[in-house]
Design a protein around this nucleic acid. Structure first.
Lengths: 228, 228
DNA sequence: CGCAGTCAAGAGCAGTGCTCTCGCTTTTGA
DNA sequence: TCAAAAGCGAGAGCACTGCTCTTGACTGCG
């Protein structure tokens, strides 16, 4: 491992600086990131940015990757910090962490989970980080099944759905009965919906106690899953 | 009632034509609607559009209103066409109708439920049409309670959430026990989340039988609500 | 030391939303 | 009936965008 050259180091620093300014612009001005504005903030001319990012989409992709990782870190850390035997506590902790992160970084959340930008297609690097939050939730269920605290739902899934979900179980590597996997996915879907509704301002005008509402709705899904 | 003048009629027709072309552009090119491109398609110059819509946002608002109404029509019609005593059938019919409409009009769905455009704030005219789909779902629950087919959940909501949801019940006019109201909202949240995940291409790469998956997940929420 | 690679700057292209002015046509009201 | 008013489309222009290409300066390696 050779030490990186000076030039490589200042280049890496420059990339970080561009991303930092871009993230700041994202937070203040919203999702329509202007490359020229970022360049202006850095005292550069817009074409200089292209030395570091081949296009605006590549800058966005870098920001998306970092955002996925930040969200994944938050959710995993919250889950890990909870009492590992308290499945319901872990479920709530993970959900709350996701919501807290989203409320603190609304523009980045919108970048991750909002409507896809027309011309933009997320590269494959993003799928693994994107799966960290749902995988964390499914991990709670996995632990529950493994320790006997969580039982599979009474009925199994009907075909052909059972086969699909069984394949999904194989791909994700989280050993779960298909019917339970489906309920876990419903929980993840609910979490996403709750956060999106709150962030995009749909119903919560009339709900002053948003924390309590969120906790209760997440708790409903814990009931559906059967978390003790 | 006087007959509208010729000029007023061609003006109304022009407005409709602009909206139609804009809707077509939305469907093909995605959410970043270009006023100039719409004008080009109409053989006009871009400034002429401003005779009919004061700004691009106003055009978008008009499209949003129509989209909300189209979705509301679809959901309400599906609910009305079902056997009114079959609560579960109505639930599934309404959910399927929303999904079918969304899959047929992805760009318009993204306009309604995607990330909000930074500078854009939805005017008040949009809130009533926007509430039609969730109100339809809640109406199914209301009918269930009214006819004794649907019972309230065992426990009530804890304060202060109970008061919030009770206020929401009052505002919407759908007489429901707060705890049941919360579950109905969870169902609506799940429906939105399911459609968004499928449309924005998150998990369903691995689920070939999407219809069956959707039906099952919607059915899970019917279970949670307690629909017979 | 010299040269290849890296860098920022500037000009420029095609596109955007939007404003304003200029003629032309239709509608309106005395 | 006829002039004033209002509506309309075209065009020019402004400030902005992402992006490309060229130019000249600088740096660090062989």
């Amino acid at each position: 491992m050779v030490a990186p050259s000076l030039r490589a180091r200042v280049r890496a620093g420059m990339i970080e600086e561009i991303k930092a300014v871009a993230r700041r612009h994202l937070a203040t001005d919203g999702a329509d990131l202007s490359l020229r504005a970022v360049a202006r903030d850095l005292g550069m001319v817009s074409s200089a940015i292209y030395r570091y990012f081949p296009s605006r989409d590549d800058l966005l992709t870098a920001l998306i990757l970092e955002a996925y990782d930040a969200l994944g870190d938050a959710v995993e850390a919250a889950d890990a910090a909870a009492d590992q035997d308290d499945l319901r506590g872990r479920w709530h902790a993970a959900g709350r962490a996701a919501r807290t992160w989203a409320l603190a970084h609304p523009a980045e959340y919108a970048l991750l989970y909002g409507s896809p930008v027309p011309g933009y297609a997320a590269p494959d690097d993003t799928v693994a980080p994107a799966q960290r939050p749902p995988m964390t939730l499914l991990g709670i269920l996995r632990d529950g099944v493994a320790t006997g605290r969580l039982a599979a739902p009474g009925e199994d899934l009907p075909e052909p759905l059972r086969g699909d979900v069984a394949d999904l179980v194989d791909q994700t590597g989280v050993a779960l009965p298909p019917a339970l996997m489906a309920r876990g996915m419903a929980g993840w879907t609910q979490l996403f919906g709750l956060i999106s509704f709150e962030l995009f301002g749909r119903i919560n005008r009339a709900l002053p106690h948003r924390d309590e509402y969120f906790d209760h709705q997440i708790g409903l899904m814990a009931d559906l899953i059967g978390l003790p």
